[in-house]
């Protein structure tokens, strides 16, 4: 057992939160944007109406959490999948750096985008 603190519970918390968040809400977005609108089940909303909806403070928080937490969920899963697929412990540190780093960059981009909508 190492003396340094194990940070995995930290990353796992975001992975877990992202798993719950994305499994509940991402299917709604897929249904709406991927099926219902393109197939004409519901009418396309006006761009201005959508923008006004997205600018609602609660909608901004929701969009930010949806994107950021899903990114951290994916990052953790990809890190561990690489570990298991490549059967190499040595890949873990660089994989963690790239995956979580990507999620952090994506989160910053999401924050900026949602803020400046």
């Amino acid at each position: 057992m190492s003396k340094s603190r194990n940070n995995d519970p930290f990353w796992w918390s975001f992975f877990g939160a992202g798993g719950v968040f994305s499994s509940f809400f991402v299917p709604i977005h897929i249904l709406l944007l991927g099926l219902a609108l393109p197939l004409g089940w519901v009418l396309w909303p006006e761009h201005g109406d959508l923008l006004a909806l997205a600018r609602n403070p609660l909608a901004r928080i929701y969009l930010f959490l949806l994107i950021a937490l899903s990114l951290f969920h994916a990052a953790h899963r990809i890190r561990f999948t690489l570990h298991d697929l490549l059967l190499a412990k040595s890949i873990d540190t660089p994989a963690a750096f790239v995956c979580y780093g990507g999620a952090i960059v994506g989160t910053l981009c999401a924050a900026m985008t949602v803020w400046t909508l």
């Binding site: 057992m1 190492s2 340094s4 194990n6 995995d8 796992w12 561990f80 999948t81």
Partner: peptide, 15 residues
């Protein structure tokens, strides 16, 4: 103290 540490439960990759 043990399960949170390196080598503990968080090393599991849920296979």
């Amino acid at each position: 103290d043990v399960l949170l540490d390196h080598g503990g439960a968080f090393d599991c990759t849920l296979i």
